[in-house]
Amino acid sequence: TRVETATETAWISLVTALHLVLGLSAVLGLLLLRWQFPAHYRRLRHALW
């Protein structure tokens, strides 16, 4: 049971790290898009909202 718990903890930390990385890359990508294509971003936002 001790090994299982350790594996579970490792998986949880791995998944958390993955989610953090994905979230950060998504935010960075959005910022980059907004910085590179302001007109396109505004049009996209206008279409979405």
Results as ranks from 00 to 15, higher is better:
10 A>I: 13
39 A>D: 08
1 T>E: 06
22 L>A: 14
13 S>E: 05
43 R>V: 07
35 W>G: 05
40 H>I: 08
24 L>R: 01
38 P>H: 06
49 W>M: 04
33 L>T: 03
4 E>P: 02
27 V>N: 01
22 L>E: 01
8 E>P: 10
35 W>T: 07
25 S>I: 12
20 L>F: 14
7 T>P: 08
20 L>W: 13
44 L>H: 03
37 F>C: 09
24 L>W: 04
28 L>H: 01
27 V>M: 14
19 H>Y: 12
5 T>S: 01
45 R>V: 06
3 V>M: 04
48 L>F: 04
40 H>R: 13
15 V>C: 09
31 L>M: 08
32 L>G: 03
4 E>S: 08
16 T>Y: 06
31 L>R: 02
5 T>G: 00
13 S>T: 12
34 R>S: 06
41 Y>C: 15
43 R>W: 13
43 R>P: 03
32 L>A: 15
34 R>M: 13
8 E>L: 06
43 R>I: 05
8 E>Y: 07
8 E>T: 14
10 A>V: 11
22 L>K: 02
8 E>D: 10
2 R>F: 10
13 S>C: 09
3 V>L: 08
17 A>V: 09
8 E>N: 12
39 A>F: 09
17 A>R: 03
12 I>G: 08
11 W>N: 12
42 R>E: 09
22 L>P: 03
43 R>L: 06
3 V>G: 00
13 S>P: 11
35 W>C: 11
19 H>K: 09
11 W>Q: 08
46 H>I: 04
35 W>K: 15
49 W>Y: 04
33 L>E: 02
26 A>Q: 03
39 A>L: 11
40 H>Y: 12
48 L>V: 06
36 Q>T: 09
5 T>V: 04
5 T>P: 02
34 R>L: 10
48 L>N: 02
20 L>C: 15
17 A>K: 04
30 L>V: 09
35 W>P: 11
41 Y>E: 04
29 G>H: 00
48 L>S: 02
34 R>F: 08
34 R>W: 04
7 T>K: 14
34 R>P: 03
43 R>H: 05
16 T>K: 04
19 H>R: 03
15 V>S: 08
4 E>T: 07
34 R>E: 01
34 R>H: 03
29 G>V: 15
40 H>D: 05
3 V>N: 00
23 G>M: 15
7 T>I: 08
17 A>M: 10
11 W>M: 05
30 L>Q: 01
45 R>Q: 04
40 H>E: 06
25 S>R: 01
12 I>H: 12
25 S>C: 15
2 R>D: 08
14 L>T: 13
5 T>E: 00
6 A>F: 04
43 R>K: 08
1 T>F: 11
22 L>Y: 02
14 L>V: 09
19 H>V: 12
11 W>R: 06
28 L>A: 14
28 L>N: 02
43 R>D: 07
16 T>A: 11
14 L>A: 07
37 F>A: 10
36 Q>P: 03
41 Y>W: 15
18 L>G: 07
3 V>Q: 01
26 A>W: 15
29 G>L: 15
15 V>M: 15
32 L>W: 13
33 L>A: 05
38 P>R: 14
6 A>Q: 12
41 Y>K: 03
14 L>R: 09
32 L>F: 10
29 G>K: 03
45 R>I: 06
47 A>G: 05
24 L>T: 03
20 L>H: 02
46 H>W: 03
20 L>A: 15
13 S>K: 10
47 A>V: 07
14 L>Y: 12
4 E>D: 05
15 V>N: 08
28 L>M: 09
43 R>M: 07
49 W>N: 04
41 Y>G: 05
49 W>I: 02
31 L>Q: 03
29 G>S: 10
11 W>K: 09
29 G>T: 13
19 H>L: 15
44 L>P: 02
7 T>M: 07
24 L>Q: 03
15 V>T: 12
16 T>R: 04
6 A>W: 04
1 T>N: 04
6 A>G: 14
38 P>M: 08
27 V>I: 14
47 A>Y: 06
49 W>C: 01
7 T>N: 06
44 L>W: 09
23 G>Q: 03
49 W>R: 01
14 L>C: 09
4 E>V: 13
38 P>N: 07
